[in-house]
Design a protein around this nucleic acid. Structure first.
Lengths: 117, 117, 117, 117
DNA sequence: GTGGTCTAGACCACT
DNA sequence: GTGGTCTAGACCACC
């Protein structure tokens, strides 16, 4: 077992921002805080903040415009895309753990119905 | 936002051991490692290891016999019980996160079907 | 024979606080001393004080709010509940010891009448 | 509150011996272990053992005969006497604690009936 | 300020 | 050897 499971801060911020995009709290084309601002908001180091945007850029979620700042990608479907990607991640991890406990797909469906109201 | 998302070590170990009980890797009545052994295995402090067994005992999963060690509860159904409890926990958390992303129960079911094979 | 009859300090404090709840000296919803204060009051280590609240919380008698402190549970009946629980405990232990001395229930009743005024 | 509640060892041994007399495990006139033996049995210091017999003697429960050892008092009723004395002590303390919780004699009787079977 | 976690190390009782 | 208790002190998150 791995006990250095503490997620790196920059990934935590990445996920937080992705969640905001996915849930519509941050919209397509919207300007994101500057690196310095992000660092203050999340009480992280500016270098870490920069890394956050680097990762989001790699994932095609935001882009930086020299001298202007960082923006969520101008793309109608960005929210939908991120939302679905996160959903798939959650679903994959959920199924993986349930199967590790020896549950079949049918049983998983049954349990979800019981919990899901 | 909360960046202390890292689960406390003692709970990580608790979950790991529960997983082993739930999946039958550790059986009812079986002796668990001594506190000192557990501490070495997981590279944690003996006090933290003790806390692990304290929590497991409080959850009715193991019992400690002074001078002898800590044992999984002598109970036929313990594996089933723990397995189902963990499954419900996973399901609840999964649904909660999916709903936070704005997915309906139907959509969640659909996504699971796509991922689930 | 067992000469470690001394009740652990943390349980002594637990019982003391429960007694205060049971007798109405501490009311539902009331704030309890901070861990550090409790440690000073009872001349114990802050960690031991923390364990006291841990036990009380686990028994459903108090709840802790991070950064705010520990409070008696907001529940009308908490005093009654704790009072009755403590009474049953005392009665059980009393009967157990009397029976170990070979007294019947009738004799116990008679002795109590003689002492009880 | 008093946290030096740990009962002195010599009183613990005194109570243990009294309990044995009260329950008939040790009989009137019976020879008690020598101070050295008692010290070994209970893993206590010989001086502490001596103090045990000193207290029991003061309470009229045993007597020491120079060169012969310590004996339970030659008295038909000694068991009965000790037994009743211990019972009264237990009853007094029980009633005291219950009254501190605000219970009336009637309520105490009721609780005992519920617990006492 | 609050509680939560973790470490390090001590001493004791039980087997 | 085992677990149970207690101390001392550290660092962190939350308010």
């Amino acid at each position: 077992m791995n006990f250095d499971t503490s997620i790196p801060i920059y990934l935590q911020v990445v996920n937080d921002l992705k969640g905001k995009v996915a849930s519509g709290q941050i919209l397509s084309g919207e300007k994101l805080p500057s690196g310095r601002e992000l660092a203050q908001q999340y009480q992280i180091n500016p270098n870490t903040a920069a890394r956050v945007y680097q990762v989001l850029e790699q994932q095609g979620i935001c882009e930086t415009r020299r001298g202007l700042g960082t923006f969520v990608v101008e793309q109608e479907e960005i929210q939908k895309t991120v939302r679905e990607e996160m959903a798939k991640d959650l679903a994959r991890k959920f199924l993986e753990r349930m199967k590790a406990l020896g549950f079949t797909v049918e049983e998983i469906g049954k349990i979800l119905k019981e919990e899901g109201k």
